[in-house]
Design a protein around this nucleic acid. Structure first.
Lengths: 144, 144
DNA sequence: TTGCGTGCAAAGGTTTTGCATGGCA
DNA sequence: TGCCATGCAAAACCTTTGCACGCAA
């Protein structure tokens, strides 16, 4: 009755890729290109299926950064759930993605939970806005 | 040289739809279906083009809620930029989209700006997590 | 009459799915 | 040998784009 998952070459390859990309963002296509360049082609369907599995197991996170670009994945290491929470800020102007650890935001997250009963998932949430550099360049972004 | 924008029947129709949907979310397809049901078919391309224009004029907002569903739009009224800020919470379990006005979150937004130089755009940011109801039903979501 | 807006259909890009084949146990 | 995982190609989906036509000014 139970599933008896097999360990395949592709799974190991993907895991080795995760090691090299710890803390960085990558797309399904990035993975495919990486192995293509090493002359180890992996089918894109396999990559999507493996990534989806890893996401559902909580081993990697998936981010929808922009609507018409591919989804981003991130591997934070073995015990990512126990690590410090970091948030993702995405600049709408230059497209930069910023990792931020911030007590104030964590506090806001706790407030959401205690006062509004909503359990924040910082692994998926992307905060949009204008980054420092872009704000300096363009004074139209004084405030919102 | 300059553009001389025309006022078309479709633009007026779309505006009348916005009135009925003030504060609610809708997709391009919702608009199309609405007018189809009134036997006034509007081409989907026109709807996308008009919505895009309204977004760039700041008259409506566009949200990317889920990666594989259509983008959501929202009309907040004539002077939406001056109204109270509200945030969007999206439940990852039941899919519910919650509107929330919350001083604590606004404070966190101001902190982002003053301490990290990042100008939050609450009109685009979607906060993911688990809503009260789903958390009650499933004790696995104790905390993150 | 001028030229912007519309509608249709086709294209674009990412992700999913069906099905036959390959490879792990 | 049994059956899960893979790869290919096709499909699905939302959105954009090209082009000819219609309609506002």
């Amino acid at each position: 009755m139970q599933k008896a998952p097999y360990k395949t070459k592709q799974q190991n390859l993907l895991f080795s890729y995760l090691q090299t990309m710890k803390g960085k963002h990558f797309t399904a296509e990035d993975v495919r290109l990486y192995f293509e360049s090493k002359e180890i082609p992996i089918g894109i369907a396999t990559i999507y299926r493996q990534l989806e599995k890893l996401v559902s197991e909580g081993k990697i996170q998936k981010y929808i950064i922009d609507e018409h670009s591919a989804a981003c994945f991130e591997y934070s290491g073995e015990n990512c759930m126990e690590k410090e929470i970091h948030f993702h800020l995405k600049c709408e102007k230059c497209g930069r993605l910023i990792h931020l650890e911030c007590d104030e935001l964590e506090k806001a997250g706790k407030h959401l939970q205690s006062e509004h009963g909503f359990i924040l998932n910082p692994l998926r949430t992307v905060i949009y806005g204008i980054c420092t550099d872009c704000a300096k360049k363009d004074r139209n972004y004084e405030s919102r």
